[in-house]
Design a protein around this nucleic acid. Structure first.
Lengths: 335, 335
DNA sequence: CTGAAAGCGCTTACAG
DNA sequence: CTGAAAGCGCTTACAG
């Protein structure tokens, strides 16, 4: 049986109101009284029941996180790294993290998860929505708590947005390949629609254009996010085209494409120059080690956690902002 | 403003008690009345406030998960995969998942996180404790809720235990190397103490012994769990010894060791045969693709979630059990 | 077959 | 400087 505030109050010889105010530092209490209360809490090993606290104060100190991770997609560690960044910084701010994966890529599923969160009374929501358009949030969230969007920027609802500079990273990658003398540069990208993929695609196109290289859509493969799909895209592309370089615009696809390239025993970068996406340790151990565009995924999570806690505590009011975290080229030996 | 049970009751023309009983199916209500209540709930888009529900019923439908993941250890996806397995099956049982990483490898931190969970009223705890001895749980958890241990089996507190057969996997790996003609087989293992590492170490030793090969402790490197540490261990081992085969007993260390081996341009398996641990997609794309011991991490999470929900609902009472999930050898080209 | 009411453990006006 | 009491939104004996 855990002790409650009543036991503490009586042990300290004060009212429960005073105990509460001492805990929350919410009105003046004399040093003397404070000491007695602290002592009583100590002795009883008192921990405030945060369920009761939540019910009364209508705050839960809990943030909900919804990210899309297919069960089949066992290699997509991007959102997991983001989640870690979120969790670790949320903890510093005294918030808990309620985790929910959208495993079906269905919008209904996403809504359902948010509704579940609602019944638990969350103070904020961090979401990488699968939808391009999230007007539905008006019905479900209303103005009950702030929403922070990560990785992609949907339309139709107001919230801060934490993104990596995918456009810049992609431009940079293609520019680098061009400078190395390539002009027949293939692209494997995740499905278009979400801003993330769109921007990376734009970066590819603009880098070509700025260098006077004609865009050829047959050098592009749009793939769903899976190892197999990356593998097949690389195979198709390399069998049809005499491309001399390949840029792969996301981490799972990079892995799959490398699977095909390793199997086919292509000499990299001599026969094919490669730049992949996302900097994980495994990119150091391919043969040769992979040049990649790094996006700061952990930091993206940290930032999202920071921003949402500012919003919750009204430190930041007014216009929603978009935060862009820089990407960078990590040069190794594949190009 | 969200609607409460009172609005539903008055809209349906019944008492709140009846509404509650309809929702929870907890006593007989006439079909007629049920219909009215359901209609009212529908119209008002009523969602029970689970904070209030928790406070009153002393259940939260929430499970806490504590796993150790160092912030530096950006490649340790084992527990993340486990967490996914847990989350996905918990969702099916109607439970939420509260996630907390122990990022310091300090026992105090672990305790603190559990205490935080306690104040939120969790119904169960799933934990991969960093401690070999968890008697402290008696004070913190008492008998308030069931605890399920994953990945490693600590002493001093009663709870079901979900483990992979690390001993068997390790034995199998070494046995395989021996059958390929190797007798000078190095081992890189995570720090001993936790049962996981201990068992894998035992498997290594017993496989040697059963084949009449003398154990030589100078062929062993004990490393902390990081890419760098794996890299350095491989370097040390290969510089000192003429080993012809290497077994690496965890995933992060495998990656680090492969980093060194790739850099040194060793011919695998000709100059060095290798078996690693954990089957991730990246093991397919090294040169050559890596033979590994697979442990079913996602399934381990699923199992943990299943067991804890059985315990919570008293479907399973009595003696705590240990569940062993089989490991398997995934043969590729590195040995 | 259903209702009136207590109470889960806190926070927070109100009052002095 | 501090206390008495209402109330957050439910569940659950108790009663009929």
């Amino acid at each position: 049986m855990r002790k409650g505030i009543i036991e503490v109050a009586s042990a300290a010889g004060v009212s429960i109101a005073t105990v509460s105010h001492v805990i929350n530092n919410t009105r003046f209490v004399s040093e003397e009284t404070k000491r007695k209360v602290f002592r009583a809490m100590e002795e009883l090993d008192y921990r405030p029941n945060s369920v009761a606290r939540s019910l009364r104060s209508q705050k839960s100190n809990t943030i909900g996180l919804v990210v899309p991770i297919l069960p089949s997609d066992t290699s997509n560690f991007f959102f997991m790294t983001v989640a870690q960044g979120i969790q670790n910084t949320l903890k510093k701010h005294g918030y808990h993290l309620l985790l929910s994966n959208n495993t079906t890529e269905e919008l209904e599923d996403e809504k359902e998860q948010i509704k579940l969160f609602n019944s638990k009374l969350i103070d904020g929501l961090i979401i990488a929505s699968i939808a391009e358009e999230v007007e539905y949030l008006n019905d479900i969230v209303g103005t009950d708590y702030p929403v922070v969007f990560i990785d992609r920027r949907p339309k139709g609802y107001g919230g801060d947005c934490i993104l990596a500079d995918g456009y810049g990273g992609s431009y940079n990658a293609v520019q680098t390949l061009i400078q190395k003398g390539h002009s027949r540069i293939g692209l494997i990208t995740g499905e278009l629609g979400i801003t993330t993929s769109n921007e990376r695609f734009e970066g590819y196109k603009n880098a070509l254009a700025d260098n006077g290289i004609t865009f050829d859509s047959s050098m592009i493969r749009v793939a769903e996010s899976s190892y197999e799909s990356g593998y097949e895209s690389a195979r198709d592309l390399l069998n049809i085209h005499r491309i001399t370089a390949l840029f792969i615009a996301n981490n799972v696809l990079t892995m799959g494409a490398m699977g095909y390239i390793q199997e086919r025993q292509l000499k990299v970068p001599e026969q094919l120059a490669i730049i992949g996406f996302d900097d994980y340790d495994w990119t150091k151990i391919t043969t040769p080690p992979l040049t990649v565009i790094r996006q700061p995924s952990y930091e993206l999570g940290e930032k999202a956690a920071e921003i949402i806690s500012l919003r919750i505590n009204d430190k930041r009011v007014g216009k929603y902002e978009e935060y862009r975290l820089a990407t960078s080229l990590v040069m190794r030996s594949s190009c």
